[in-house]
C-alpha cells in the first residue's frame, strides 16, 4: 500500500490548470503547423498562423490561450494499491481547481443553477471528476480544460444497429457540419461508439485525450477514423469556418461492446485550443 497525500494532489491539479491554459501541447502545435502546410485557402493559412502566434504569446506572457479557460474535467486513474491520506480526495481536487484558476488569473466560467439563476461560483468549481480504479500503486491525474463553445456542439444518437458503419460516419459528419464555425475548428473530433447512453459520451471525451493524430491501435477503427477525417475535411468549413481544407486536425474514435438492440454514437468536439495534460504521482 502506497500513501499519497491529498495536499500533493491539490498542488498537482492547481499546477495543471495553469499549465494547460498557458501552453498548448506540443502535439497540437505540430498539428497546427502541419495544417498550415496543407491548407489551400490563403485566409485559412493566415488564421492558422495567427493561432500559432496566439500560442506563442500565451506561453511567453502566461496569458490564457483563450478567454474561455474551460470547465475543469479531471480524470483520476487510481491504482488499487494506493491509499489517499489527509482528507477527502474530491475536495482536494476541487481545491486544486479553485487555486489554479484563482492564482492563474484564469476565467471562472461555472454557474451554480444552470436553468434559472445562473450565479457564477467565482472559483470555477465544481470540477467534473471521473475516477477509475486500476492495478498498481500510482495515481494518474489528467486535467482537461474544456471550453463551452465546442462542448455545446457535441451530439449523441442511438442509431439502429442496421445503420452500421455508414450511419456512424454520416452522423459524425452531420454533427461537424452543424457545428460549422461555432465550435472553433480545426477540431479534434472525439467519437464514442457502443456502450450505453451514459458511457458512450465519456468514451468520446476520453478519445480527446489521445495524442493528436495518433490512430486507434485497432486497424478497423483506425480505418474508420481516416474515413471520417477525409469526409469532414471535404466539407469546406476550414479554420474557424472561414473556408478551407482543414476542418479537423484529427478524428479519435473509441469503441465499447453494446446491446444487441443498440448502436450508440457520441461526438464530443474539441476546439483547436485543445488543453489537457497529465501527471503521474
Amino acid at each position: 500500500m502506497r500513501e499519497i497525500k491529498t495536499s500533493v494532489i491539490t498542488e498537482a491539479v492547481a499546477r495543471l490548470c495553469q499549465e494547460v491554459n498557458f501552453e498548448l501541447g506540443e502535439d497540437v502545435v505540430t498539428a497546427l503547423k502541419k495544417a498550415e502546410q496543407v491548407e489551400e485557402s490563403s485566409l485559412g493559412k493566415e488564421v492558422l498562423k495567427q493561432l500559432l502566434e496566439n500560442a506563442r504569446i500565451a506561453k511567453k506572457e502566461s496569458l490564457p490561450l483563450c478567454q474561455d479557460c474551460g470547465m475543469a474535467v479531471v480524470f483520476l486513474e487510481i491504482g488499487q494499491d494506493v491509499h489517499i491520506v489527509g482528507g477527502n480526495l474530491y475536495k482536494a481536487v476541487e481545491e486544486g481547481v479553485r487555486r489554479g484558476y484563482t492564482d492563474g488569473y484564469l476565467r471562472k466560467s461555472m454557474v451554480n443553477q444552470p436553468f434559472s439563476a445562473r450565479v457564477n461560483t467565482k472559483d470555477n468549481t465544481p470540477p467534473v471528476i471521473h475516477t477509475e480504479i486500476l492495478p498498481g500503486d500510482r495515481l494518474k491525474i489528467t486535467l482537461l480544460a474544456k471550453g463551452g463553445g465546442a462542448e455545446n456542439m457535441s451530439r449523441l444518437v442511438m442509431l439502429k444497429p442496421g445503420e452500421g458503419r455508414q450511419g456512424v460516419i454520416d452522423f459524425v459528419a452531420m454533427a461537424v457540419e452543424e457545428a460549422g464555425g461555432k465550435a472553433c475548428p480545426p477540431l479534434i473530433i472525439g467519437v464514442g461508439i457502443g456502450g450505453t447512453v451514459d458511457t458512450v459520451m465519456l468514451l468520446a471525451k476520453k478519445a480527446l485525450l489521445r495524442k493528436v493524430g495518433d490512430p486507434n491501435p485497432e486497424p478497423e477503427i483506425a480505418e474508420l477514423e481516416k474515413e471520417i477525417f477525409n469526409r469532414v475535411n471535404n466539407l469546406g468549413i476550414g479554420p474557424l469556418g472561414f473556408g478551407g481544407r482543414v476542418t479537423a486536425l484529427a478524428v479519435h474514435a473509441k469503441v465499447l461492446p453494446s446491446h444487441i438492440a443498440s448502436l450508440p454514437v457520441a461526438v464530443n468536439l474539441q476546439c483547436h485550443s485543445a488543453r489537457h495534460k497529465e501527471i503521474l504521482i
Binding site: 496566439n54 483563450c66 464555425g181 474557424l240 485550443s273
Partner: peptide
C-alpha cells in the same frame, strides 16, 4: 463581423 475564435491572447 467574425473574428478569430480561440485567439484571445493575440
Amino acid at each position: 463581423f467574425v473574428t478569430i475564435g480561440g485567439a484571445g491572447a493575440l
